[in-house]
Write a protein that binds this DNA or RNA. Structure first.
Lengths: 152, 152
DNA sequence: AAACACCTAGTACAATCGCACTATCTGGTC
DNA sequence: GACCAGATAGTGCGATTGTACTAGGTGTTT
């Protein structure tokens, strides 16, 4: 992500040095001509920063997934809503996540919740998938960010 | 990379949804207070866009490598390292911990810091011992509780 | 020079993790 | 009844983790 101005000159170099990165320009400028020039300079996306956060998020996600995005406030077409990550979690999964975020192993969580460690693994896998992470450290970080570190 | 303004509100969500990404804010605003607020919101770096392109490039590269960068045009001081609220940890251990707390594996951390995964394990073990935990999920939780991913 | 702290890199090993399956039971819905 | 979501429990397997060693390099301190 980037902004225009002097930085426009840096775009080709950026594109070259970080050829595998996604570059999305978020600018206060809401002008199609500027947008196209920026895209030509090597950006994968251009979005006006006056747009609501969830649209910016959607644009970032889209670019990360390989899409090219060019979205101005004047011609703003909606993309999608960002859902709260906790919405998709069941109560049991939250129970597991809370203990996971304290550093407990599957076996320890199982003892605490009085279920088999195998079952804990099922819940942990679901939690990782729901939070879009692949490790429990990442899940713990998100759990803390969501305020799940409080004692039950 | 990002810009301030409305986007500041998007940063926590961005940090959450793209927990493994590096976020560097490039802003026309050249103010320490703003910079610190942005860093607290989840950015890995803040740099004034009036700075010359090569400095911006260097900042981007540094952030990609795991450093935290806070660089204003006015106070030209090059880099504001994360001053350790984590006593007993070396700078390298903090580097590792910060990446660990985002869910990166030892291999990924090694690639990011350009060191062997074996060396990463050494640092991780030291971190776990220093934080009195036995798992990286617990370390991630403590790291966040200690404000590792924030700025004082 | 010697001691110390730190970063680096490797091997070895047990334990755990994460994923992909199958399977049963319950409760709610169409 | 059929269907589905959720919780439970298990096996199998490759990858990862955490610990315990050895070992070389750098830089600082005494």
């Amino acid at each position: 992500m980037f902004t225009t101005g002097n930085l426009e000159a840096s775009l080709p170099t950026l594109r070259q040095r970080f050829s595998r990165a996604s570059i999305i320009v978020v600018s206060m400028i809401d002008d199609m001509e500027t947008a196209k020039r920026v895209m030509s300079a090597g950006a994968d996306g251009f979005i006006c920063k006056s747009l609501p956060p969830h649209e910016i998020m959607a644009a970032v996600a889209a670019v990360r997934d390989g899409d090219m995005v060019l979205q101005l406030a004047a011609s703003g077409l909606p993309i999608g809503e960002t859902d709260a990550p906790l919405r998709g979690l069941t109560q049991r999964q939250i129970d597991v996540l809370r203990l996971l975020a304290r550093g407990l192993s599957n076996k320890e969580i199982g003892l605490r919740l009085d279920i088999s460690p195998f079952t804990v693994r099922i819940h942990v896998s679901a939690v990782l998938k729901a939070l879009s992470v692949t490790t429990r450290a990442g899940a713990a970080a998100k759990a803390i960010a969501l305020g799940l570190d409080q004692s039950p």
